[in-house]
Computed example of a mutant assay.
Amino acid sequence: MAESFFGALKSEWLSRMVFVTRAKARRAVVQYIEGFYNRRRLHSAIGYRTPLEVHTEYLSRQQAA
């Protein structure tokens, strides 16, 4: 899973970016993860859903138990 994530990060996004500082790069990566990768990008390994959907479903099941 980690290799898949880093491959997507590099090919879908970082390959087109140039950063002036390491801090700006770090902020941009966090924004990519939280704004796109976890909330909008569909993942085949989890049934073509977003990680946020899967996490929300997990929390709902935990509260119901």
Score class of each variant (00 low, 15 high):
1 M>Y: 02
1 M>N: 12
2 A>L: 13
2 A>F: 10
2 A>G: 13
3 E>L: 03
4 S>F: 11
4 S>L: 13
6 F>M: 04
6 F>C: 11
7 G>H: 08
7 G>L: 03
7 G>P: 07
8 A>W: 10
8 A>D: 09
8 A>H: 13
8 A>R: 15
9 L>A: 09
9 L>H: 12
9 L>V: 00
9 L>C: 01
10 K>I: 07
11 S>A: 03
11 S>K: 09
12 E>S: 05
12 E>Y: 07
12 E>D: 14
13 W>T: 08
14 L>G: 01
15 S>Y: 03
15 S>L: 00
16 R>Q: 00
16 R>S: 07
16 R>W: 04
17 M>P: 01
18 V>F: 09
18 V>M: 00
18 V>S: 09
19 F>S: 05
19 F>Q: 04
19 F>Y: 08
19 F>I: 02
19 F>C: 03
21 T>K: 04
21 T>D: 05
21 T>Y: 08
21 T>S: 15
22 R>W: 11
22 R>K: 12
22 R>E: 12
23 A>D: 15
23 A>E: 15
23 A>M: 01
24 K>A: 12
24 K>V: 07
24 K>I: 03
24 K>H: 14
25 A>V: 06
26 R>W: 08
26 R>M: 07
27 R>C: 02
27 R>T: 10
27 R>M: 00
27 R>V: 06
28 A>P: 02
28 A>N: 12
29 V>Y: 07
30 V>M: 14
30 V>P: 00
31 Q>S: 13
31 Q>K: 13
32 Y>K: 09
32 Y>G: 04
32 Y>E: 06
32 Y>W: 15
32 Y>P: 01
32 Y>S: 06
33 I>A: 06
33 I>Y: 04
33 I>Q: 03
34 E>N: 13
34 E>T: 05
35 G>V: 12
35 G>M: 02
35 G>I: 03
35 G>C: 04
36 F>C: 08
37 Y>R: 05
37 Y>P: 10
37 Y>K: 07
38 N>A: 03
38 N>W: 07
39 R>H: 06
39 R>V: 02
40 R>V: 05
42 L>P: 05
42 L>K: 15
42 L>N: 07
43 H>A: 02
43 H>K: 02
43 H>S: 01
43 H>M: 08
44 S>M: 11
45 A>R: 13
45 A>H: 12
46 I>E: 09
46 I>P: 00
46 I>G: 06
47 G>D: 10
48 Y>H: 11
48 Y>A: 05
49 R>A: 14
49 R>G: 03
49 R>L: 11
49 R>H: 06
49 R>Y: 05
50 T>C: 06
51 P>C: 09
51 P>S: 05
51 P>Y: 01
52 L>D: 13
53 E>C: 10
53 E>D: 15
54 V>D: 06
55 H>M: 13
55 H>T: 04
55 H>K: 10
56 T>Y: 00
56 T>H: 10
57 E>W: 06
57 E>T: 12
58 Y>M: 12
58 Y>A: 06
58 Y>L: 13
59 L>S: 11
59 L>M: 14
60 S>H: 06
62 Q>L: 15
62 Q>A: 03
63 Q>G: 11
63 Q>F: 04
64 A>L: 07
64 A>Q: 14
65 A>D: 12
65 A>E: 02
